[in-house]
Nucleic acid binder design. Structure first.
Lengths: 132, 132
DNA sequence: GTAAAGTCTATATCTACTATAGAGTCAAGT
DNA sequence: ACTTGACTCTATAGTAGATATAGACTTTAC
């Protein structure tokens, strides 16, 4: 398929129509051609670009970082050091978040276990734990 | 200490001054007394309340849920079932997020490992992986 | 007396979307 | 031809949970 309108692109990319327009406004997707009715017309290149964006987003790469990656991709001769740094940084952040959530899980589980027999707010073990 | 101004409360509660005012506007903290200069004057009860709020927030409990908890706490005779439900729900969500992040970690690690020898954008294994 | 630090309100900014209103367009069915 | 529903358009507002800023006032320390 050579051309498609925004709805079909949304289908193909598992991305809502509004999000596509949002990415365009953010400068992640370049402005597509418009047909006689002012409808956006996309080609397969746009689908590729959008797929790249979604892949990055699913990895927790921010919109600003994606912008940088898009610029970098146009300069094949430059060093890819910053790309590696970005990925390593994300690994660090994810590790940190994993640690936090793991700890949170134990705390929440402990709190849940303290539900007392009476089941009234006044003697609620859960609320007592929340109160530190 | 019987009374304190917002800066000291912020210190004691590990919470910024702006955040305290924000919680007040959200209805989590009741409006404190004001001194002659219109400065907020807090007592230890406010500190306790704020500590409760921060504890809940650190557990991922939303502001709206905290509002509900605050209402519930005033009714000691009612059932604490909804409190338990809330905690259980959070445990579920944290579990889900942990799974997601664990998967993300493996994907990111795999991508990082694909950094090729050349270290140029053009042959960047990392960027190639991002391109699906 | 003056300067720094603290406080006040109101408003804007952040991230990444999501939702809505109101208008225009297009294709299928009757 | 007409209508109905699905699709598209723009512009604007809303979400969560803060965080930051501007401009004015007050207090505190020297």
């Amino acid at each position: 398929m050579v051309e498609m309108k925004i709805g079909l692109l949304a289908n193909k990319s598992d991305c809502s129509v509004q999000t596509i327009r949002f990415y365009e406004k953010q400068g992640l997707l370049k402005q597509p051609m418009r047909n006689a009715s002012n409808y956006r017309e996309y080609d397969d290149g746009a689908l590729k670009q959008l797929t790249f964006i979604r892949q990055c987003r699913s990895l927790g790469i921010s919109i600003n970082e994606i912008k940088q990656l898009i610029v970098l991709r146009e300069q094949p001769d430059k060093s890819c050091e910053s790309v590696n740094q970005m990925v390593k940084q994300h690994i660090k952040e994810v590790s940190k978040r994993l640690d936090e959530l793991t700890h949170l899980q134990t705390v929440l589980t402990d709190i849940a276990a303290s539900c007392s027999a009476g089941h009234s707010i006044g003697e609620c073990g859960v609320l007592k734990k929340l109160d530190i």
